[in-house]
Each structure stands twice: as structure tokens, then as C-alpha cells.
Amino acid sequence: MTLPGCGREPRRRDGVSAGSVKGQAQRIFRPGVARIRLNVVRNVEEDVALALKQVAASHGRSAEAGHREILRSTLRRPPRRPLAEVLASMPNVGEDSDFDTRHNAS
């Protein structure tokens, strides 16, 4: 829907286009009810989309539920420590010869 003579969609007071996906999603929810955020990912390669569907199906989930679980598990895991930090946290014990796995015949 566009306004006559201006070629653009009308906007609500909050700046959301009346015909946008966000605008449609916001109209579904009533005031006082928790809102669910809608994320749309475009231009996903066909093989990636198929792999997502297969992984979800193998866990007995819909593709949408599988996507939510992937996002949840990825974003809630603790951040990885840099290798330098891991190595620096190791105790300095033993001599280099204690870790030499080559056997000298002499």
C-alpha cells in the first residue's frame, strides 16, 4: 500500500512501515502480552537450508525449532579463550627432557 502521489508506504507513529513484516508481527500481539522477536535471514544457500532442515528433522524438530536451538546453544556457550591465554595458564613443571618422546640409542 502506498500513499497517492508520494510512492512510499505510510508509516505509523513509531516509524514502522504499515506493510512491513515487523509491522505485521507487531499488529498480531496485544498490549500487555510478551512480544516475540521475528528474525528473517535472506539469501541462505540451498545446501545450507537443506542441512538445517535435515539436522532439525534428525532431532525430531521443525526447521524453525531447530534454528532457534542452534541460535540458543551458540549464543549461550561460554566464550572461547585465546590459545595464548590457555598456554600461559598451564603450570611450568618438569624439564624439556621429561617430554622428549624420541628415544636416543646412545
Rank of each mutant, 00 (worst) to 15 (best):
P78Y: 04
S17K: 07
E64K: 15
V41S: 02
V40D: 06
E9Q: 10
P10Y: 00
I28F: 13
H67Q: 15
T74F: 14
R42V: 09
G66R: 02
E64G: 14
N43R: 09
P78V: 08
L50E: 04
Q24D: 07
D96C: 08
A34H: 11
Q24G: 00
R81L: 07
S62N: 03
K22D: 12
N43E: 07
P91S: 06
V93K: 08
P78T: 11
R72D: 12
A84G: 02
E69L: 08
T101A: 13
L3K: 07
T74H: 08
A84W: 07
F99R: 09
G32R: 04
S20M: 01
S17T: 09
G23L: 03
R72Y: 11
V93W: 13
L75M: 06
E69A: 08
L52R: 04
A25R: 06
P10A: 05
R80E: 13
Q54H: 11
D100K: 11
F99T: 02
L38K: 09
R27P: 00
R11H: 12
F99K: 06
G94R: 00
K53T: 10
L50C: 05
L87P: 00
E46K: 12
L71S: 08
A49W: 01
V86D: 01
R12D: 09
E45K: 07
R72V: 08
H59P: 08
R11W: 05
V44A: 00
L3N: 12
G66L: 00
S89W: 01
G60C: 05
A56L: 03
P82D: 14
F99D: 06
T74I: 12
D47L: 11
L87K: 00
D14H: 00
R13N: 07
I28S: 09
I70F: 11
S62Q: 02
L87C: 03
